Simulated scan of single mutants.
Amino acid sequence: MPRRALDNPLVLAILGLLLERPMHPYEVLADLRRRSEYQAAAITRGSVYDIVSALAAAGWVSEVARHRAGNRPERTVYDLTAAGRAELVRRLDDQIRHPQREFTPFLGAVAYLGALGPDGAVDALTERARRLGERTAADERRLAEVLADGVPRLYVIEAEYALGVARAELAWIDAVLADIRGGVLAWPEVK
């Protein structure tokens, strides 16, 4: 299990948080959820604890303290080791330098947009744009709140990136809708 856990995309986020300060896994989970809805959607309490356990087994984090508050379970606080920092830097450098093609469910659906017909495509894309616009506005508010709380911008730069991607998608949808409505994107005759 540890090797598989070390392949989890959340490893990078957890190592990054521990670079900021030592914390226990529940704090890691809370910080991830507070800072970014995009990360929060991909995590569970169990996955964070499993990943931290794998990080400790790999020597990338080490236990620095144990705390107990009242009747609550004992919480183990972890800190990044020199090997963990080196792994964080290695992974960051690799992922930033080498763009990957990411296949999203939306990309898969767009490939067959024609099956909806022009009216169905307009309806579906209009609805997606509305929902994406609402989510983007909420994400902008959340980011502003996090920054106002004093979280350094560099610690939430991924939220800025995600907003940029969402805005680009909205602009693309608007352009496609204009092309459909204007007859520029034509549907072939169906037999």
Rank of each mutant, 00 (worst) to 15 (best):
L92F: 09
I157F: 05
L154T: 07
V190R: 15
A30D: 11
V89P: 03
P73M: 04
V176N: 03
I51K: 12
V11N: 06
V165N: 00
A137E: 12
E134L: 14
L15P: 04
L132S: 05
A41S: 07
D179M: 08
L185Q: 06
A58N: 09
S36Y: 00
I173Q: 00
A58L: 12
M23G: 01
R33C: 10
M1R: 15
V64R: 08
L177W: 08
V165S: 00
E140W: 04
P25V: 04
P2N: 14
G108E: 07
D179E: 15
L147G: 02
A159Y: 03
G164S: 13
R35N: 06
R4V: 10
A121V: 14
A83Y: 09
E27L: 05
G46A: 15
D7Y: 09
T104S: 11
G108P: 05
R91V: 15
Y49V: 03
A144M: 10
G84E: 10
L29Q: 12
A41H: 14
A162L: 01
N71V: 08
R3A: 14
A186W: 08
V190K: 13
G16F: 10
A121I: 11
W187M: 12
L88G: 05
G59L: 12
V184T: 12
L113A: 10
A171P: 01
P22L: 02
A5D: 14
V48S: 06
V165I: 01
M1W: 12
L29V: 03
Y38A: 01
A56L: 12
A69R: 14
A166L: 02
A124E: 15
G120T: 09
M1I: 11
E63I: 08
R141P: 02
A129G: 01
I173P: 01
L125S: 09
Q39T: 07
A58Y: 11
V110N: 01
R91E: 07
D149Q: 15
G150M: 05
R91M: 09
G16M: 07
L80T: 02
Y49C: 10
R153C: 01
L12V: 10
